[in-house]
Nucleic acid binder design. Structure first.
Lengths: 198, 198
DNA sequence: GCGCCTCAATTAAACACTTGATTGACTCGA
DNA sequence: TCGAGTCAATCAAGTGTTTAATTGAGGCGC
């Protein structure tokens, strides 16, 4: 159970602190983020938190990295064949459904990016990559004939992103409407299972 | 310049406080909402704020009402004829574009609704009304032949809401992608101006 | 008109508690 | 012994809320 080396221990503790902060933000928002609570949750003293993260700001940076990493790993899903597009949509939806905290924290970060240039830059970068990924998936699907070849891939990718991003808002994510929205997207794309392609 | 009656004066001051809080939330989020700052911004003493709003919580309630009212007045737009749908989409987009604060505060409220049942209830109610409005617009458009008659109006309405709601997130609202997304929606709906209907 | 009272509105100054950050001592493995 | 890691205790600056006092407009008897 105990880590073998100092370095691993140190990593463990840092990660534990970041994850505690992540959970705190998910539960109470940035509004309710308290260094004491995070330290308690991680089972250490406040001073220990400040040993690893000199300022609260740097702890937040850690949460940003952790959160984006969590999300990125889903985006890089290596689905099999032609319906990569469909599986991508479902993967994102499943991710938020299985871990609602991730959606909430992403939402908090998105809102914070309006006041925090560092976060804004990171989010913009990630969104750019996401947009390119989606556009590539759409182009391939168009080439393979599973979606209409004359779709404006830029615009469709933007629409997919907007819809998926709206899941970070509890008012959207909680009800049944997000599933309805995704279903309609699949219908229009022609990638829904019941009516395979045309 | 001076209000004529006591009641009007009182209303003015309450409104001034609510609007100051509204601006504070837009600028700093709930995280940065301070009663002193709000009072200062409204040009009164902190105690005066608490004279009108016994607790910070009740001040926030005031902001919720104010914000939802602002949004509702746009939803009830009485556009002319068949392209009510299109004009509704544009009205919402224009609203957020002209007053970015509204989008940000709505986003903050949406996130807060995860921890505040009172806000959750209000937002859910508003979303229900919005969904019904959109569905009605879609059904009328289908009857009039401007959109495909076999669309699942529930699902399309949900998709429209998700896309529009994503505008409350700065990461979406700031770039050009939200306009691309809306353009694509109009294309699929068949309500875009360049290719009127089919 | 004039003195007296009432009361809504407003304020300066606390009050009680929180919060991010620091300090200095202690632990314990290498 | 040395130093990375940890903690109890502490600090300065907030932070929502309250209190006690002041102001000034309106009512009323005279």
């Amino acid at each position: 159970m105990a880590p073998t080396t100092r370095t691993a221990e140190r990593l463990d503790r840092k990660t534990a602190l970041v994850q505690a902060a992540y959970r705190a933000i998910a539960a109470e928002g940035f509004e309710g983020l308290r260094t004491r609570d995070v330290a308690d949750e991680a089972g250490v003293n406040v001073a220990t938190l400040h040993y690893y993260f000199p300022t609260k700001e740097q702890l937040i940076r850690g949460v940003v990295e952790y959160t984006m990493g969590r999300f990125r790993s889903t985006l890089e899903s290596r689905a099999a064949s032609s319906d990569q597009l469909r599986s991508h949509l479902h993967a994102v939806r499943r991710l938020i459904k299985n871990e609602p905290q991730l959606g909430i924290v992403m939402g908090e970060l998105a809102l914070r990016s309006a006041r925090d240039p560092a976060i804004a830059r990171i989010m913009e970068e990630a969104n750019g990559a996401w947009h390119r990924t989606l556009r590539a998936l759409l182009k391939r699907a168009a080439r393979e004939g599973s979606v209409h070849p004359e779709l404006d891939t830029d615009d469709v990718a933007a629409l997919l992103m907007a819809t998926l991003t709206s899941m970070t808002l509890p008012t959207v994510a909680s009800g049944p409407r997000i599933d309805q929205a995704l279903r309609q997207l699949e219908r229009w794309l022609g990638v829904n299972r019941s009516r395979p392609s045309n």
